[in-house]
């Protein structure tokens, strides 16, 4: 096995140590996701509006969903179906989902009428849409886990639909154990990953400016001309 380091013909890589996949990955991440974009200290003036609150409201709802869901899964159905604290935690889980969806839908409406896919933000829009769809499936499996007459009704109405589209044997809503695993393992991972990617993309491209935003605003000036922000505070 050779340990000889080959020099790169690319002048951009000279002296950076980016000859390996780890080095190249580091270069890629620093170029596309610089720390000052991922954790900015300032935002353009138009962000001081209620229209820019609901996305983070949905993320806050998701944090409560995951937190209460972890407590529910640590204690199990015998606890959350019969004890007072279990009922309370179950209700926190349900109402966090209600708020998560309400904030997400208002966020969707506002960003739709702002044409938020402008300025190279198409993938941000697509990941947001995917987050909505995966969240619907996750909430659906949650309703199946109520283990009451309501969930039984929902399951067997859905069974017909899922059988009709050919996935009923693979995603079997009549199999409580399988749906339990989808709800507490696979789908939360999917929602978490898609939402994380969505937030990273929002950071990478910046929040979308309003349709009538002044072309002199800091974020627009920075992204279009690449010039220094004259209003930036001296470090």
């Amino acid at each position: 096995m050779s340990t000889v380091k080959e020099s790169s013909p690319d002048p951009e890589l000279a002296g950076t140590g980016a000859y390996t996949w780890t080095g190249k990955s580091r270069q890629w991440f620093l170029r596309h996701l610089p720390p000052e974009k991922l954790l900015p200290e300032d935002q353009p003036s138009y962000v001081a509006s209620w229209a820019y609150v609901f996305g983070m409201g949905a993320v806050a709802g998701l944090i409560f969903i995951i937190g209460s869901g972890v407590v529910l899964s640590l204690n199990g159905p015998q606890w959350y179906h019969v004890s007072s604290l279990g009922h309370f935690t179950n209700s926190v889980h349900l109402w966090s989902v209600e708020l998560f969806f309400m904030f997400m839908v208002v966020h969707l409406w506002i960003k739709f009428w702002m044409a938020a896919w402008r300025g190279g933000r198409l993938l941000t829009w697509i990941t947001g849409m995917l987050a909505f769809l995966v969240s619907i499936v996750t909430a659906f499996t949650g309703y199946l886990l109520q283990t009451n007459f309501d969930s039984q009704w929902i399951a067997f109405e859905a069974k017909d639909a899922l059988n009709a589209v050919g996935i009923g044997a693979w995603f079997n809503v009549a199999n409580l154990g399988q749906i339990f695993m989808w709800h507490i393992m696979l789908l939360p991972l999917a929602v978490g990953a898609v939402v994380a990617l969505h937030v990273v993309l929002v950071r990478a491209h910046g929040v979308v400016p309003p349709l009538d935003a002044a072309a002199t605003d800091a974020q627009l000036r920075d992204s279009t001309a690449g010039a220094q922000d004259p209003e930036a505070k001296p470090s």
């Binding site: 003036s45 001081a48 509006s49 209620w50 229209a51 609901f54 309400m102 904030f103 409406w109 800091a218």
Partner: peptide
């Protein structure tokens, strides 16, 4: 109730002033 709440939030987000908004950059 959920649908009417979402519509109310949408309209209020457009018309209500944001606290501290004027003093920001």
């Amino acid at each position: 109730v959920v649908i009417l709440t979402m519509l109310a939030l949408f309209i209020l987000a457009l018309i209500l002033p944001f606290p501290g908004g004027r003093s920001r950059k």
